[in-house]
Nucleic acid binder design. Structure first.
Lengths: 266, 266
DNA sequence: ACCGATGGTTCAAATAATGAACCACGCTAA
DNA sequence: TTAGCGTGGTTCATTATTTGAACCATCGGT
């Protein structure tokens, strides 16, 4: 661990609950010497990573991080990161995976990935409009959305896609409670017949769902083992994707095992 | 200059034209030793500020900057407030508006807004680095900055962006006096040919300019009427924005009519 | 006036950064 | 093939920077 890493670790103590921190607090939180913290923060301030707030009584994040975030977004747009995750998902499950994003009151598929393992597979179209009530992705998003949004979605006519499409708002709300508890949404033939989907939400900086990752399997091929594997990989990928687009999961999201965390090479 | 500052300065070499940089390039650009750069980047990678791209051949900005930007935005909602102002400006003028902030000796564009009224419009890139002497935004800021800052900026080489770029320090200072009197800066083709810009400064809590709001119009479309409307809206928006980020305009700023102020009680 | 906070500063001691040279690899041209 | 030049990555003695206890000035409440 070098000096630079130590200094940067100070930025890790800023969060939504603690957007501004004083010198002494920061020293206590980090366990570092006050003088060390002071010098580190001075250097960070010099580069615009932090700045002093009201009259110099405490530090907060600086404008430079905004510039860097813009560049990151330009260098690594959501789509390319998503495609990476989809490749991972399909490799782990040997099934079709896809990503969708909320755009207003609509849910749009933006990317998908096939596995070459099986002759039969669920096929997707990018830019396809999904329904919130009929798809695992939509349910995953609704489960963690604001009540007002859920109300608005369920108040509109709920199309029947297949004989298995659930259209009763009350029963849908009941399912949402189950999804909130497990963190994973399921849909068996609710949008397309013979398709069993698992989906997890992706969160934006405001802790609200911005989209969902899903794995779609022909119902005949779904098994407990596959469901478990898909679920594990989905939660790991979703956590990774949420992080990489700068989002935050809400505290209410059930935590899965974190053993599959990607290793940072040094 | 300490080690931390040196390491962080490496992040300054990333921009829109150069979103990914290899180890050797970075060493050349920074003038540092290759080993030093390697260690710095390794530490930055450890903290998620950068990551290796395709197979580890080069570095790019990492996901941590997105998290920090979110937190900065939560602590100082400059960006979201600014976007509101830009929408207002573009709606009033039917032209492109943008916002930039001073970061050290640089001026960075952080947000912009297009109008859909006209087929032709001035286009912008966020995170673009603007020049102080060539842009209306830069001149607006210089006009109300401390003399030492102006001296420092004008002492450095002043790039020629177009045939209309003013690079004579004395003539620039003369223009600054005019801007101080009117409160609005103008640039006709000084940064990009065929772009006529109007800009006003935004002030921080220390009564110093922290950035600028600007309207950019294709020269062919600029008229007296449009200039008057843009100027009125700019001064109103700037006053509002300065207030909402907790800043104060200096007494030397010419007062415009305040009848157009929008009330935003919370 | 006191006390206990705060942010900021100093200086000898010790730790961490530095850079030339090095290695292994992957190109391209001869 | 081989030589040359580029890349990313690594080593180790030298060096200079970071470190932290103690210090100061100031503020606000009792």
């Amino acid at each position: 661990m070098g000096t630079v890493s130590n200094a940067l670790s100070l930025l890790g103590f800023f969060n939504l609950q603690r957007p501004e921190i004083g010198l002494s607090d920061l020293a206590r939180l980090s366990g570092m010497n006050k003088a060390t913290v002071y010098r580190h923060m001075s250097e960070l301030a010099l580069r615009g990573f932090v700045e002093k707030s009201h009259g110099g009584t405490s530090y907060r994040l600086g404008p430079e991080v905004l510039r860097l975030a813009s560049l990151r977004e330009a260098a690594v747009p959501l789509l390319s990161v998503a495609r990476e995750m989809l490749a991972r998902l399909s490799a782990a499950t040997h099934e079709t995976s896809h990503m969708s994003v909320v755009q207003g009151m609509r849910l749009n598929a933006i990317a998908h990935h096939y596995s070459t393992r099986h002759g039969t597979r669920v096929t997707m179209e990018d830019a396809e409009v999904l329904s919130f009530h009929g798809t695992a992705s939509g349910l995953a998003i609704l489960a963690f959305s604001e009540a007002a949004f859920v109300d608005a979605v369920l108040a509109r006519p709920l199309p029947v896609h297949t004989p298995h499409t659930e259209t009763d708002p009350d029963r849908i709300r009941a399912r949402l409670r189950g999804i909130r508890a497990s963190g994973v949404a399921q849909s068996v033939g609710g949008f397309e017949a013979d398709v069993h989907s698992l989906a997890v939400p992706i969160f934006g900086p405001d802790r609200c769902p911005t989209g969902a990752l899903a794995v779609a399997v022909p119902v005949a091929r779904m098994s407990d083992a596959l469901a478990r594997r898909a679920q594990a990989e989905l939660t790991a990928c979703a956590a990774d994707l949420t992080r990489r687009i700068g989002g935050f999961a809400p505290e209410t999201l059930p935590l899965q095992d974190t053993s599959a965390r990607s290793e940072m090479t040094g």
